[in-house]
Design a protein around this nucleic acid. Structure first.
Lengths: 259, 259
DNA sequence: GAGTGGTCTAGACCACACA
DNA sequence: GTGTGGTCTAGACCACTCT
């Protein structure tokens, strides 16, 4: 059983912070292990002689720090750290496509997790100004939009939406649910657009409520947004892929020239 | 004056969420502009006919989403969006060092913000295992550690800690407070280590309380961690720079090969 | 002093998980 | 059914900001 102190009413920290600090340090010191259950609100009320709202506020503090998750009817538990997937800077190299696998599948298998994809949606739309800018299109052009969600060991870790100029996608399997071996990039190359390089724009923020739901994110879990644009050997942008990743699950690697 | 609806007790969303949703959409639609004051708790209590704790919970929801900031004695205000600095993939190219400026200074000036540096600390330490791994050193080696904080228009946006093998730094200005024109990288090249490339490891997470203080971060503002390792033309790692950036202030750009 | 958010109390009823 | 967290009420006193 966890050993707890008492609230010092003369301390300049309010009681709820003192309680939060005690629980936090218990977590940091490993006296409360990942997955372990915290004392219940009733326990805290009784032990610290505070009202329930004060005990709840202490718990709320830890939730907002992302240290614990509350589960109604079960209790509050120390959050387990997600396994990190390292995305190497050569992850889109052609040699990884040769055997017909998509980038996510390869990366996942390398990390020893079971990859899967669901919530695939395909449509044809008019590009937003964000996409127009990156694909050098106008509002009168059409793009094929492919949205999907990636899971690692059945845990959602990333959503991705690809935009391909309809002119390139038409007549290929890009607009089909199953794009065939090697994924979108293989089909784009089949269509005569040999890929030359990609740019990625990386930022981080808190998720929207919808993203939080799609990725089943706990409180205080940020997301990484990675917008990738693919260019063919003529310098033409041929695809934009807008991805939202659960931040704790990823580490991105890049290489930069010094020249 | 902001137009507000009412809580629907038969709605399946609890009242505090309905109130939060109304305020959030007012913010999203621009009816509450950045910097503008939200209705006070007393206003909400009166308008929606709920208790103060319920009104507070609605506000708390928006705070945890990072949409608003509460200021005691003043009110709750829509958070202003920070100007974004875009870091280009050629930001460490040698041509940017030629005129004797450090990377941060160049980037900042390009973005039209006034750059500054403070909290410079220099020391000599034994490398952590994290640093040992990246610089290929052992615990018995020494590294020169340079910590500093970068500000844009006097707002702290980034902390950085560089680790340079003492063997390379000794006898140069790297261990001085002022490293001279071109910064650390120019001194490393002076010492005969011509820079070839860098790797960056990018991740995002919530800040520690100390980072939150250093970067003056509001609630629910994530940070980007970028760990950069510099390699010379012989393939030897010559510096590791561990940076923590206020996420809303940055957009990182990278280029990836397709081959 | 008036208005604001910060903290706290002592209750209440509900929804959910588990045995 | 018992224990858990989720939500709510109707008060209270405090610290801070602004006029």
């Amino acid at each position: 059983m966890l050993q707890l102190g008492t609230v010092d009413r003369s301390d300049d920290r309010p009681p709820y912070k003192q309680i939060a600090d005690e629980l936090r340090s218990a977590i940091d010191l490993g006296r409360l292990a990942p997955g372990e259950k915290l004392p219940s609100e009733a326990d805290l009320v009784e032990h610290y002689k505070v009202s329930r709202m004060t005990a709840r506020q202490a718990i709320q503090e830890l939730r907002s720090e992302g240290l614990v998750d509350a589960e109604q009817g079960r209790g509050v538990f120390v959050r387990k750290v997600a396994p990190i997937r390292r995305l190497a800077s050569d992850r889109f190299a052609r040699r990884h496509r040769q055997d017909g696998k998509a980038a996510f599948i390869i990366e996942a298998e390398k990390s020893g997790v079971q990859p899967s994809v669901d919530q695939i949606r395909v449509s044809r739309e008019s590009p937003s100004s964000f996409i127009q800018e990156r694909l050098r299109l106008t509002a009168s052009d059409s793009v094929v939009v492919r949205a999907r969600r990636y899971l690692a060991n059945d845990i959602p870790v990333e959503t991705a939406v690809s935009y391909i100029p309809a002119e390139i996608a038409d007549g290929t399997a890009i607009a089909e649910l199953n794009t065939g071996p090697g994924g979108i990039y293989a089909r784009i190359e089949d269509a005569g657009h040999i890929l030359d390089h990609f740019t990625e724009e990386v930022s981080a923020r808190m998720p929207t409520p919808e993203e939080r739901k799609d990725l089943q994110l706990g409180a205080s879990v940020p997301v990484l947004r990675v917008v990738r644009t693919a260019y063919d050997t003529t310098g033409r942008p041929v695809e934009v892929c807008d991805t939202i990743k659960a931040a704790p699950a990823y580490l991105l690697e890049y290489e930069l020239p010094a020249r």
